[in-house]
Design a protein around this nucleic acid. Sequence first.
DNA 1: GTTTGTGCAAAGCATTTGCAGCTGG
DNA 2: CCAGCTGCAAATGCTTTGCACAAAC
Lengths: 141, 141
Amino acid sequence: MGDESDRTGKMTAALRKAGIRVTRQRIALLAVLAEAVDHPDAVELHERAKRLEPTVSLATVYRTLSVLEEEGVVHRHSFQGGGARFETTHEDHHDHILDIDTGEVIEFQSNKIEQLQEEIARELGYDVVHHRLELYCRKKL
Amino acid sequence: MGDESDRTGKMTAALRKAGIRVTRQRIALLAVLAEAVDHPDAVELHERAKRLEPTVSLATVYRTLSVLEEEGVVHRHSFQGGGARFETTHEDHHDHILDIDTGEVIEFQSNKIEQLQEEIARELGYDVVHHRLELYCRKKL
DNA sequence: GTTTGTGCAAAGCATTTGCAGCTGG
DNA sequence: CCAGCTGCAAATGCTTTGCACAAAC
């Protein structure tokens, strides 16, 4: 709980820093994002936020998510099937495993793969600006 | 030219095999796909196909692409920004580099990365069914 | 002749936007 | 106060679909 309000605090601070007004709707969304351990989509975030602040509209959820994304506070993922899903940015970069059957998202991290990517791009005359790596998987029996 | 009609031939064969009728519109689309070296989207494919067969509609392009995808004849890619882009399936599996500035697509292949992916999934109790790896890059100076 | 494919226009879906009113600083 | 938000509803962009006609086999 301490952690959670810390994160919310950091987020509101980020809003303030960006010269952006701190409204009831935005606070609600930030709280929801802070406590989310899954990777919810906009509709899901909207539903959760409405429980804290019934006046939030889906349009505002989208607008706020875009602002937060620009500020680097959240990441937007466009996995296969359905709409975008969001997560709060955390320290370490990571990629995702998606459980095909359940839709569950598992995070992982591989420096080796990262290095190989850079290497491949370099050999072809490119610099990697960002990448997308998703493993669509099924649980082993 | 021989190669190209070979590929078209293989594709029509694939249609026949799937018990699907071979129509003028589908032949046009197949020809366009066979000669495409880039990764065109549906609208672009529609425009090219219309040059061969003016009666093709965009709806049919989409419908045919879905059939071809199910038959494993083409692959659909959903890169960031804009709609889906298509390419004919070729022997070797590969991933993509996307030039952020030009939209150009470069293919590459890395067994090492592939192996690492399997390894990571296995350790977490998963089998990789398929994956998506895209490097969004900028040309080095 | 059936059965399947086609064009057209309308519908779907996720997301964005214009606008008149509300509200934070 | 007044710029910056907000909800609402309408608009967007890509893709799919219902339907009556056309064309494969």
